[in-house]
C-alpha cells in the first residue's frame, strides 16, 4: 500500500464525512425552529464548505484553493455576524 493510496483514501473519507456534516447542518437550516438556529446552521455549512475546499487543494496539490478557503472563512464570518445583528436590531446598518 503506497503512501499516495493512503492519502487518497483518507481524503475521500474526509470528503464523505464533511458532506454528511453539511447535510446534517442543512437539515437544521431548513427545519430549524427559529431564525437563530438557521443562522447557526448556515455558519456551520459555510465552515464545512471551506474545509472541503482545503481538502480539494490537498488533492489537486495547488495553492490557489487555499486563497478561496480564506475568502470563504472571511465571508462566512461577515455574513453570520451581519445576520446576528439583523436578528437583534431588525436592521444591519443604523
Amino acid at each position: 500500500m503506497s503512501s499516495v493510496t493512503i492519502v487518497s483514501w483518507a481524503l475521500l473519507g474526509a470528503h464523505a464525512m464533511l458532506a454528511v456534516a453539511m447535510l446534517l447542518a442543512g437539515y437544521r437550516v431548513f427545519m430549524g425552529p427559529r431564525a437563530q438556529d438557521r443562522v447557526l446552521a448556515f455558519d456551520a455549512v459555510y465552515l464545512n464548505a471551506m474545509l472541503q475546499t482545503v481538502l480539494l487543494g490537498i488533492r489537486a496539490g495547488s495553492d490557489v484553493f487555499f486563497e478561496a478557503a480564506l475568502l470563504m472563512a472571511l465571508l462566512g464570518f461577515v455574513s453570520s455576524s451581519a445576520l446576528a445583528k439583523f436578528l437583534m436590531r431588525g436592521e444591519v446598518i443604523e
Binding site: 493512503i6 483518507a10 474526509a14 446534517l24 437539515y27
Partner: peptide, 26 residues
C-alpha cells in the same frame, strides 16, 4: 510513509470532529 500516515490521521480526525459538531447541532 510517515508523512502520509500523519496527513491521513489529521485529515480523518478533523473531518470526524466536524461531523460530530454537526451531529451535536442536529
Amino acid at each position: 510513509l510517515w508523512a502520509a500516515l500523519l496527513v491521513a490521521v489529521l485529515v480523518l480526525g478533523g473531518a470526524l470532529l466536524t461531523l460530530l459538531g454537526a451531529l451535536g447541532l442536529l
